[in-house]
């Protein structure tokens, strides 16, 4: 498999099955490096299943099997000799609901680095990660407090900080803002634009507005008559053919966002 430097990850004839049921059928996409790629589509079409295939989180679902290939640096993630632990070390993930560990803010970030054999100065890493996640100023005086004391939006940014602390190449985000208020959502979206300078981001969202606002590329998923999901369109978000995406209002202020969010949430 030739490895074009332009792409962070690509799939070939990727299908995912739960027992006899095919949840995802024949997905072929190429995700560009240092860009934000959104996966959109109606509920139940397998967006999360596809996203979780990228860092082998589906391994924990019993009965789940994968056919086809996902390539990272020309290596098939589902190859026989590939270690899922290493895959996840390279491809981080932020989940739908903020899920910080029941530890201190500091430990939340330090833990992942420590288990992965981090050799540098931990304090620096914690500070840098929190700064990158735009959380440092809010928590710098209470690093030893429980992460549960933070607000939902702060917790989600902490989860992002903890993910970038282990310096992955790709960050997967599974509806990272769906449990958050509009203001926190905006901050996450701003953060994503910052992060794409260093990382490739793949985000699942059920909010088309969010996809239009925040992503460079969009994969649209649908289910066929056998209820198997598939990518029906994959393109530059700006060239996207879906009318309501093109007509998306320009967001310039938080008030706009709140309004837009109310009107267009799917």
């Amino acid at each position: 498999m030739e490895n074009n430097n332009q792409y962070a990850i690509e799939t070939q004839a990727l299908s995912i099955h739960y027992g006899n049921f095919t949840a995802i059928k024949n997905v072929n996409i190429k995700v560009e490096k240092q860009k934000i790629t959104a996966i959109i589509g109606p509920s139940g079409c397998g967006k999360s299943t596809l996203l979780r295939a990228f860092n082998r989180m589906n391994d924990f679902v019993s009965g789940c099997s994968v056919t086809g290939e996902i390539f990272l640096h020309g290596q098939n993630l589902y190859g026989k000799d590939v270690d899922p632990v290493e895959v996840r070390r390279k491809i981080g993930m932020v989940f739908q609901k903020p899920n910080p560990f029941p530890k201190s803010i500091y430990e939340n970030i330090a833990w992942g680095a420590r288990i992965n054999g981090f050799k540098g100065k931990m304090d620096e890493l914690v500070e840098n990660s929190l700064r990158h996640a735009a959380l440092w100023d809010e928590v710098k005086d209470k690093l030893q407090e429980s992460a549960y004391a933070l607000s939902g939006g702060q917790q989600q940014r902490l989860c992002i900080a903890r993910t970038i602390a282990i310096q992955p190449e790709i960050i997967l985000m599974d509806e990272p803002a769906s449990a958050l208020d509009p203001i926190s959502t905006l901050r996450i979206e701003e953060l994503m634009q910052e992060l794409k300078k260093n990382y490739t981001i793949i985000i699942v969202t059920h909010n088309m507005q969010q996809a239009a606002r925040a992503s460079d590329f969009t994969a649209m998923m649908m289910i066929d008559d056998q209820r198997a999901g598939g990518v029906i369109e994959f393109d530059d978000t700006k060239k996207y053919s879906l009318a309501h995406l093109i007509n998306a209002p320009k967001i310039t202020s938080q008030a706009d966002l709140v309004k837009a969010d109310k009107e267009h949430r799917l």
């Binding site: 632990v85 290493e86 840098n128």
Partner: peptide, 19 residues
């Protein structure tokens, strides 16, 4: 950010120890 994580050979060595 400078990379202080073990990569490639070093990572595999560390990983097999973890396993």
């Amino acid at each position: 950010m400078q990379n202080h994580f073990p990569e490639n050979e070093a990572f595999y060595k560390a990983l097999s120890k973890r396993y």
